[in-house]
């Protein structure tokens, strides 16, 4: 995640100082990717050096300097919105690496590795779903509330809830994909274990005898 682009996108909303940027970033993304304020100020310094942001004036009474986008910065943010995120590079994923190693290192119970992970991922998925339910309940309550002078503030809060909901749903879909992949891993390992030329290894001894549509093989296995 590019902190630089995130901070610039926030500044498109109006001038802000470092701590404010950090708070807004975390609020709009549900605190999913926490920033430390030092990271924010370092990034602002680089952006200023590159002519993408500039201070709005002198420090205020509490020593805080607000920043705004320059014209070049505004253009860069515009380009960011319309350019797809680069998916060419493959991020290092610990679980994928762990399972890839588990099937090649003797003595590892791959089924247990996959099952333990699936339980943990489902638990995480469940927690995310409960948080999503809370946000959705809040939205429904807000929809039912009478309108009044505080509508603009409510609108802002509603947008922040929507942002948080989208982040949550991304995490939910990612966790779901992981569970599906782990299901697939088990089936794949099972099929591999049935191949006659397969050397007997750690993952072939610990596999379930039912990894999908092989109900008929169960009777044999239980004799």
């Amino acid at each position: 995640m590019s902190v630089k682009q995130g901070l610039m996108a926030l500044l498109a909303d109006g001038p802000m100082y470092g701590a404010q940027l950090r708070a807004e970033f975390e609020d709009r993304t549900g605190g999913t990717w926490p920033l430390n304020v030092g990271q924010v100020y370092t990034t602002l310094a680089r952006l200023e050096r590159d002519g993408l942001v500039e201070p709005t004036g002198e420090a205020d009474g509490e020593g805080r300097i607000s920043y705004r986008l320059t014209q070049a910065g505004t253009e860069e943010v515009g380009t960011w919105w319309t350019t797809p995120v680069d998916r060419d590079s493959t991020p290092r994923d610990e679980l994928t690496i762990k399972l890839a190693l588990a099937v090649t290192v003797p003595g590892v119970d791959v089924q247990a590795v996959a099952q333990t992970q699936r339980t943990a991922t489902l638990k995480h998925l469940h927690d995310l779903t409960r948080l999503k339910q809370q946000v959705m309940r809040k939205q429904r309550e807000a929809e039912g509330a009478p309108s009044g002078p505080a509508d603009a503030a409510k609108h802002d809060e509603g947008n922040h809830d929507l942002a948080w909901l989208l982040v949550l749903e991304n995490l939910i879909f990612t966790a779901e994909a992981e569970v599906r992949w782990l299901d697939h891993v088990e089936t794949r390992l099972h099929r591999e274990s049935l191949r006659p030329f397969r050397r007997s290894g750690a993952h072939t001894t610990a596999l379930p005898d039912d990894a999908g549509d092989h109900a008929g093989t169960r009777t044999e296995a239980r004799r």
Binding site: R118, L122, D210, R218
Partner: peptide, 27 residues
């Protein structure tokens, strides 16, 4: 569907007619 199971308080896994795991009660 894991995403749908996540609405439950807990999830029980069956494999080959046996409960192989459970997520335990919710936080």
């Amino acid at each position: 569907e894991a995403r749908h199971a996540a609405w439950a308080d807990r999830v029980v896994f069956l494999r080959d007619g046996v409960v192989v795991d459970s997520t335990g009660r919710a936080s």
